[in-house]
Design a protein around this nucleic acid. Structure first.
Length: 480
DNA sequence: TGAAATGTTGGGGCG
DNA sequence: ACGCCCCAACATTTC
């Protein structure tokens, strides 16, 4: 039985990928109504693509943090599990809610679920309002002269900046509400069962992270206070722990908004253009995803549909386990497994290795990242994998093939990064730390390295693999 | 947000 | 003093 929607009914804020109180337009709108609030998170069981394991762990802790913040403001986070449509109907029935607010999402199945819900609830007489809570500008905001969307990053970002700057100046990030008027309560976060049951993997990956709005803000502030000064070069050195902002998992959970980041970076005392253009790549990925709903499954360039990827389970597994025999690649893959995150420079190298050296379909890599990255962003993950594969919009040219040890020699010359994640090589001298197969026998045995035993021989020989990729890519171009 | 092959230049050793 | 060779350093081209 549906209760009469009376004007005293509560307002529902449906949290999704915006697990924060500050700069949260949907929450802000709900607070402004003055109604009691139902602050709701639904663990949706009917999503198109279920969350990866790492991201579930993050979500658990991010919900813990959000629920604490909400309690300090005098209310409670309401948790439910099930298809959103069913859960919402039930809650509205029970509470007599009069209005519903949420921040938009941009992946195809989310858009579809949201618009169905919006239509049917409006029909039922509810006030439903939606907002942009996760992007600097909506993906449809930035148009070319011809009225389409930009397919190349640089002109896109130039045009986007023209819009973003003035808009933020007149409409700065929102402060968190001073207090929240509660409606009622509650189910425990543990009941959602997000954490893995057996191993302590989730504890390990959280050693370096503080999920939640406060952790996100701390990270941003400490980055802007100093490290951003050397960002242009510092961001290329994977052993440099403050070289990059490490905001990606926070941003993906919506614990911080890109508007807050933009504003804080612009207000800081150091130039932030280079850093903000990385935020721009995230934004651009959402443009691509919005206009190409199947970005995670389908080649953006259909030319690639005929590409003859190799099926090679063993090599794929060696790659995921960090056992390729290329120390720089293995360090990256192990960093991902152990920490739920990988340095961006190394992401490009390991992705190039999987796709070009092993000729394995980019979707395999995208899947692995989806499951193991704490951030697993639906737009950035697929756009970036397609970028490396060459199948994406504004993609890397087919002949750009990273040298898996050359990149290590350039960006990890002292081997600090490799030694951290590939400790079985730590006693090798710097000269051979990226290329153990080239080391003389005495040096290997002195360092306690037995190739093929304590550390693998290279999975493929670099020169051969490079030439094989070039000719395969060229071939597939001429077919189209 | 690349790497390798190829081309060019200029300094030093040497007859 | 000069031409010649070598080679490192840098620039350009190619994939």
């Amino acid at each position: 039985m549906t209760q009469e929607k009376n004007s005293d009914g509560p307002a529902i804020v449906w949290f999704r990928r915006d697990l924060r109180l500050a700069d949260n337009p949907a929450l802000n709108a709900a607070v402004k109504t003055g109604r009691p609030l139902i602050l709701l998170y639904i663990f949706e069981t009917d999503a198109d693509r279920s969350l990866g394991s790492a991201k579930k762990v993050w979500l658990h802790h991010s919900l813990v943090s959000l629920s604490q913040s909400i309690e300090t403001k005098g209310a409670k986070l309401l948790l439910r599990k099930g298809p959103a449509e069913v859960v919402l109907d039930e809650i509205i029935d029970q509470s007599g809610a009069a209005s519903l607010y949420w921040n938009r999402r941009y992946e195809a199945d989310g858009i579809e679920r949201d618009s169905n819900i919006k239509a049917s609830l409006k029909e039922a007489g509810l006030e439903v309002e939606t907002f942009n809570g996760s992007l600097l500008t909506e993906p449809w905001d930035v148009e070319t002269q011809a009225g389409g969307y930009y397919k190349v990053f640089t002109p896109y970002w130039r045009a986007a900046c023209q819009i973003i700057g003035p808009r933020l100046a007149s409409n700065p990030p929102l402060a968190p509400p001073k207090s929240l008027r509660p409606f009622n309560k509650n189910m425990a976060i543990d009941d959602l069962g997000l954490l893995p049951k057996d191993l302590d993997w989730d504890e390990k990956i959280l050693e370096d992270w503080t999920p939640g709005e406060n952790g996100a803000m701390d990270r941003l502030k400490s980055f802007l206070a100093g490290p951003i000064k050397d960002y242009a070069d510092g961001r290329n050195i994977p052993s440099n722990e403050t070289g990059t902002s490490r905001l990606s998992p926070h941003l993906a959970a919506g614990e911080i908004s890109p508007r807050q980041i933009w504003q804080a970076a612009r207000d800081g005392k150091h130039t932030a253009d280079k850093f903000l253009s990385e935020i721009g790549w995230r934004e651009f990925s959402y443009v691509l995803l919005y206009h190409n709903p199947e970005l995670a499954e389908k080649n953006y360039k259909p030319d690639f549909d005929n590409f003859d990827w190799r099926t090679d389970k063993k090599s794929l597994e060696a790659w995921t386990q960090g056992q390729t025999g290329y120390p720089f690649v293995d360090a990256g893959m192990r960093e991902l497994w152990q920490t739920g995150w990988m340095h961006n420079r190394v992401r490009m190298v390991v992705a190039s290795f999987l796709i070009k050296h092993l000729l394995i379909d980019w979707r395999e890599g995208e899947d692995w990242f989806w499951d193991t990255l704490l951030e697993a962003d639906p737009a950035a993950n697929s756009a970036s994998w397609q970028w490396v594969a060459g199948s994406g919009a504004d993609a890397a040219p087919y002949f750009r093939i990273f040298n898996p040890f050359g990149q290590g020699e350039k960006f990890d010359a002292d081997g600090e990064y490799v030694r951290k994640y590939v400790p079985e090589l730590k006693d090798l001298p710097d000269k051979y730390i990226q290329t153990p197969w080239a080391a003389p026998k005495e040096i290997l045995s002195k360092a306690g390295v037995k190739l093929g035993k304590t550390y693998p021989e290279p999975l493929v020989e670099h020169k051969m693999a490079r030439e094989r990729a070039l000719s395969r890519y060229k071939e597939s171009r001429s077919e189209n």
